[in-house]
């Protein structure tokens, strides 16, 4: 792959009538990376994806995929992309196998060995009618149809919807293999731990605006965590208040609660002087991550 960006959007803006979808989004997804597109529901993730695939047309700005214009070359782009929609709806009146056969024919044929291997990995019962399938089983079919032609780029909108943890794990493995094979993944999600787990870089979108694009390491170093440390006996508060990045310290009944920005290292080392019974960490919610970015922006001013 020679291009320096698989997906590039410049000033991509979409209004639905007067309602804002996305506002001046500038994105660059590099070849061979797993890019996470993170944001709460209604932030504009799906709008961005639909524009890339030419289902909807930008109000302003433009997008290229493989250096091809999303509007002029949509058929060629579709040929090289595997796509999973967010609100998955499949033809109910056929079996999973027939659905894959049909979609495969639209793409000019399939490697059934690979399809069957995927179905086995995801424990997907292909001969069953789609009508009776649970949400999770439909989602598996959706994943298989996105991966089955081994596309150069995968665009996955909330791919783990309804999957049980075992299958989710299998899916994360598949993502890693895809990346190792040099292919690119663009994945939207509203679940932070998922994005942290599988992505190389993350774009955070909120109310139609791309707030930031970071590597996972940077994101984590900015991240805010709520910690509870249970000690065997009471501990003096002054041993902890001086630790950089530790805020909102409170000690009650041998339990210290605090908020930590960035690395946990100093706090853990300070705690090690005492007998620790348990450490409970609360993953920061998406909203908390956003707040750190907004606070950061405000401090800078």
């Amino acid at each position: 792959m020679s291009q320096d960006a698989v997906i590039r959007t410049s000033g991509l803006t979409k209004y639905y009538g007067k309602q804002l979808g996305i506002d001046a989004v500038n994105l660059e997804v590099k070849p061979g990376e797993i890019f996470g597109y993170l944001g709460p529901n209604g932030a504009g993730k799906t709008t961005t994806i639909r524009t890339l695939l030419d289902f909807i047309r930008p109000t302003r700005g433009a997008a290229t995929v493989f250096d091809l214009d999303s509007r002029q070359s949509s058929v060629e782009i579709h040929r090289r992309v595997g796509y999973l929609n967010g609100e998955l709806a499949l033809y109910n009146n056929m079996t999973g196998e027939d659905l894959l056969r049909y979609l495969g024919n639209l793409r000019g044929g399939l490697d059934w060995k690979y399809v069957n291997a995927l179905a086995e990995r995801f424990q997907c019962d292909l001969p069953r009618r789609i009508q009776g399938l649970s949400l999770g089983n439909k989602q598996k079919l959706g994943l298989i149809q996105a991966f089955m032609h081994q596309p150069e780029l995968l665009i996955l909108d909330e791919p783990t919807n309804g999957l049980d943890p075992l299958i989710q794990h299998e899916f994360y493995d598949l993502l890693t293999e895809t990346k190792l094979a040099g292919r690119t993944v663009f994945l939207s999600s509203h679940i932070l731990p998922e994005v942290e787990k599988v992505c190389d870089r993350v774009g955070i979108i909120r109310q139609g605006k791309l707030v930031t694009v970071e590597t996972i390491e940077t994101l984590k170093s900015h991240s805010v965590r709520k910690l509870e440390i249970h000690f065997a006996a009471n501990v003096p508060k002054d041993k902890f208040v001086t630790i950089p990045g530790v805020r909102d310290i409170d000690i009650q009944n041998n339990v210290l609660t605090c908020t930590v920005v960035g690395s946990l290292d100093a706090l853990v080392k300070a705690s090690a002087q005492f007998v620790v019974v348990n450490i409970v960490s609360h993953e920061p919610s998406l909203e908390e991550i956003f707040m750190t970015y907004y606070e950061g922006a405000n401090h800078a001013k």
Binding site: V75, H78, V81, E87, A89
Partner: peptide
């Protein structure tokens, strides 16, 4: 309206 047009149009079909 059923939502099936999306993944149909995602195929290389004009």
């Amino acid at each position: 309206e059923k939502g099936t047009l999306g993944f149909l149009l995602a195929n290389p079909v004009p």
